[in-house]
Amino acid sequence: MQIDDTDRRLLRQLQADPALTTADLAARANVTEATCWRRLERLRTRGVLQGQQAVIDWHRLGWSVEVSLRVTLDKTDPRAFDGFIAAARQIPEVLEIQTFLGRVDVRLNIIARDMEDYRRLYRERILTLPHIADLEALMHVSDIKSGEALPL
Protein backbone atom coordinates (compact mmCIF):
# COMPACT_ATOMS: atom_id res chain seq x y z
CA MET A 1 0.00 0.00 0.00
CA GLN A 2 1.24 3.46 -0.85
CA ILE A 3 1.11 6.12 1.82
CA ASP A 4 1.58 9.84 1.37
CA ASP A 5 3.23 12.53 3.50
CA THR A 6 0.08 13.06 5.58
CA ASP A 7 -0.11 9.35 6.43
CA ARG A 8 3.60 9.39 7.31
CA ARG A 9 3.12 12.39 9.64
CA LEU A 10 0.21 10.65 11.36
CA LEU A 11 2.13 7.39 11.74
CA ARG A 12 5.27 9.14 13.04
CA GLN A 13 3.25 10.98 15.67
CA LEU A 14 1.33 7.85 16.61
CA GLN A 15 4.57 5.88 16.99
CA ALA A 16 6.00 8.62 19.19
CA ASP A 17 2.92 8.69 21.44
CA PRO A 18 0.27 5.98 20.87
CA ALA A 19 -1.95 7.45 23.62
CA LEU A 20 -2.64 10.68 21.71
CA THR A 21 -6.28 11.60 21.27
CA THR A 22 -7.48 12.08 17.70
CA ALA A 23 -7.59 15.84 18.32
CA ASP A 24 -4.00 15.96 19.60
CA LEU A 25 -2.78 13.67 16.81
CA ALA A 26 -4.50 15.86 14.19
CA ALA A 27 -2.93 18.99 15.66
CA ARG A 28 0.56 17.47 15.72
CA ALA A 29 0.21 16.19 12.14
CA ASN A 30 -1.27 19.53 11.00
CA VAL A 31 -4.57 18.10 9.68
CA THR A 32 -8.20 18.45 10.71
CA GLU A 33 -9.72 15.97 13.15
CA ALA A 34 -12.02 14.64 10.42
CA THR A 35 -9.08 14.06 8.08
CA CYS A 36 -7.11 12.42 10.88
CA TRP A 37 -9.98 10.08 11.73
CA ARG A 38 -10.59 9.15 8.04
CA ARG A 39 -6.88 8.51 7.45
CA LEU A 40 -6.56 6.34 10.55
CA GLU A 41 -9.64 4.33 9.57
CA ARG A 42 -8.22 3.80 6.06
CA LEU A 43 -4.88 2.68 7.51
CA ARG A 44 -6.71 0.25 9.83
CA THR A 45 -8.92 -1.11 7.05
CA ARG A 46 -5.90 -1.74 4.85
CA GLY A 47 -4.05 -3.46 7.67
CA VAL A 48 -1.29 -0.89 8.14
CA LEU A 49 -2.49 -0.09 11.67
CA GLN A 50 -3.28 -3.33 13.42
CA GLY A 51 -4.40 -1.96 16.76
CA GLN A 52 -2.92 -0.65 19.95
CA GLN A 53 -1.58 -2.65 22.83
CA ALA A 54 -0.45 -2.18 26.37
CA VAL A 55 3.29 -2.59 26.82
CA ILE A 56 3.86 -4.08 30.24
CA ASP A 57 7.26 -4.02 31.92
CA TRP A 58 7.37 -7.63 33.11
CA HIS A 59 10.49 -6.87 35.19
CA ARG A 60 8.37 -4.70 37.48
CA LEU A 61 6.00 -7.63 37.95
CA GLY A 62 8.72 -9.89 39.28
CA TRP A 63 10.04 -11.58 36.14
CA SER A 64 13.83 -11.20 36.09
CA VAL A 65 15.13 -13.83 33.66
CA GLU A 66 14.78 -13.77 29.88
CA VAL A 67 16.12 -16.56 27.70
CA SER A 68 16.11 -17.02 23.94
CA LEU A 69 15.95 -20.68 22.98
CA ARG A 70 17.12 -21.64 19.50
CA VAL A 71 15.55 -24.94 18.52
CA THR A 72 16.40 -27.30 15.70
CA LEU A 73 13.61 -29.76 15.06
CA ASP A 74 13.67 -33.40 13.97
CA LYS A 75 12.83 -32.95 10.30
CA THR A 76 12.25 -36.67 9.72
CA ASP A 77 8.70 -36.21 11.00
CA PRO A 78 6.53 -34.08 8.68
CA ARG A 79 4.39 -33.06 11.67
CA ALA A 80 7.37 -31.76 13.68
CA PHE A 81 6.78 -28.02 13.12
CA ASP A 82 3.06 -28.10 13.79
CA GLY A 83 3.40 -30.37 16.83
CA PHE A 84 6.22 -28.37 18.36
CA ILE A 85 4.55 -24.99 17.82
CA ALA A 86 1.19 -26.19 19.15
CA ALA A 87 2.86 -27.47 22.32
CA ALA A 88 5.04 -24.35 22.75
CA ARG A 89 1.95 -22.11 22.51
CA GLN A 90 0.60 -23.81 25.63
CA ILE A 91 3.47 -22.54 27.80
CA PRO A 92 2.44 -19.17 29.29
CA GLU A 93 6.06 -18.09 29.85
CA VAL A 94 6.75 -18.27 26.10
CA LEU A 95 6.39 -14.65 24.98
CA GLU A 96 7.40 -15.07 21.37
CA ILE A 97 7.70 -17.86 18.81
CA GLN A 98 9.52 -17.27 15.53
CA THR A 99 10.32 -19.70 12.71
CA PHE A 100 13.41 -19.51 10.50
CA LEU A 101 15.00 -21.01 7.44
CA GLY A 102 18.43 -22.45 8.15
CA ARG A 103 20.00 -24.58 10.87
CA VAL A 104 17.78 -23.09 13.57
CA ASP A 105 14.11 -23.77 12.92
CA VAL A 106 12.39 -21.99 15.81
CA ARG A 107 13.25 -19.37 18.39
CA LEU A 108 11.34 -19.15 21.65
CA ASN A 109 11.63 -16.09 23.84
CA ILE A 110 10.75 -17.07 27.41
CA ILE A 111 10.68 -15.38 30.79
CA ALA A 112 11.04 -16.74 34.31
CA ARG A 113 10.80 -15.21 37.76
CA ASP A 114 14.36 -16.24 38.71
CA MET A 115 16.95 -18.91 37.87
CA GLU A 116 15.19 -21.56 39.96
CA ASP A 117 11.94 -20.86 38.12
CA TYR A 118 13.83 -21.03 34.79
CA ARG A 119 15.38 -24.41 35.72
CA ARG A 120 11.93 -25.77 36.59
CA LEU A 121 10.40 -24.38 33.40
CA TYR A 122 13.26 -25.73 31.30
CA ARG A 123 13.12 -29.24 32.79
CA GLU A 124 9.36 -29.62 33.09
CA ARG A 125 8.04 -27.73 30.08
CA ILE A 126 10.75 -26.99 27.50
CA LEU A 127 12.54 -30.34 27.47
CA THR A 128 9.20 -32.13 27.15
CA LEU A 129 8.30 -30.29 23.92
CA PRO A 130 8.04 -32.74 21.00
CA HIS A 131 10.43 -33.14 18.05
CA ILE A 132 13.48 -31.31 19.46
CA ALA A 133 16.71 -32.41 17.78
CA ASP A 134 18.93 -29.65 19.22
CA LEU A 135 18.41 -26.82 21.67
CA GLU A 136 20.59 -23.82 22.51
CA ALA A 137 19.78 -21.39 25.31
CA LEU A 138 20.97 -17.78 25.15
CA MET A 139 20.61 -15.84 28.40
CA HIS A 140 19.48 -12.26 27.85
CA VAL A 141 21.90 -9.76 29.39
CA SER A 142 20.74 -6.33 28.19
CA ASP A 143 18.80 -4.48 25.52
CA ILE A 144 20.94 -2.27 23.34
CA LYS A 145 18.21 -1.22 20.91
CA SER A 146 14.60 -2.18 21.17
CA GLY A 147 11.56 -0.84 19.43
CA GLU A 148 9.18 -1.28 16.60
CA ALA A 149 9.18 2.28 15.26
CA LEU A 150 9.56 2.42 11.49
CA PRO A 151 11.73 5.04 9.77
CA LEU A 152 8.80 6.94 8.24
Rank of each mutant, 00 (worst) to 15 (best):
I144V: 15
I111A: 04
Q90P: 05
D82G: 13
M139D: 03
L43A: 11
L129I: 03
I126P: 02
L69G: 01
L138F: 11
H131Q: 14
N109M: 10
D105N: 07
A29E: 03
L135P: 05
H59T: 08
P18A: 04
W37R: 15
K145S: 09
Q90M: 10
R107H: 03
I3R: 02
R79V: 05
Q13T: 01
S68V: 01
Q50T: 14
A133S: 12
E124R: 10
D7P: 03
L10F: 01
R46W: 05
T45Q: 10
L11D: 11
E66P: 00
H140M: 04
F81V: 03
R70L: 12
I126F: 09
L49P: 06
R70A: 13
N30W: 01
P130G: 09
L101D: 12
D134R: 08
L129T: 03
T32S: 14
L49C: 04
L43P: 07
T21Y: 08
P78D: 14
D24M: 07
L138H: 12
V67C: 05
E124A: 12
G62Y: 08
V65S: 07
Q90L: 10
R120Y: 06
V55P: 02
I126M: 06
L40V: 06
T45H: 10
Q52F: 12
V48T: 13
G62Q: 10
T72G: 15
D134W: 08
V71R: 00
H59R: 13
R107C: 13
P130M: 03
L25F: 00
R39P: 04
Q15M: 04
E93R: 03
L73R: 05
Q13W: 08
I126Q: 09
A16N: 12
G62N: 11
R119G: 04
S64R: 15
R107E: 15
T45R: 15
R89M: 12
I3C: 04
A86D: 12
D17I: 00
L25I: 00
S68Q: 11
G102K: 02
L43S: 01
I91K: 01
I126C: 04
L129K: 08
L10Y: 04
A29R: 07
R60N: 11
Q98W: 10
S64W: 08
G83W: 00
A16H: 08
R38G: 06
H131D: 13
V65N: 08
M115G: 11
L10A: 01
V67Y: 05
D74E: 09
R89A: 10
A29S: 14
L40Y: 05
Q52G: 12
T99G: 06
D5K: 09
A80C: 09
L150V: 12
L73Q: 00
D114Q: 06
R39M: 03
S64E: 12
R113Q: 02
L61Y: 14
E96M: 08
D77S: 09
L127R: 15
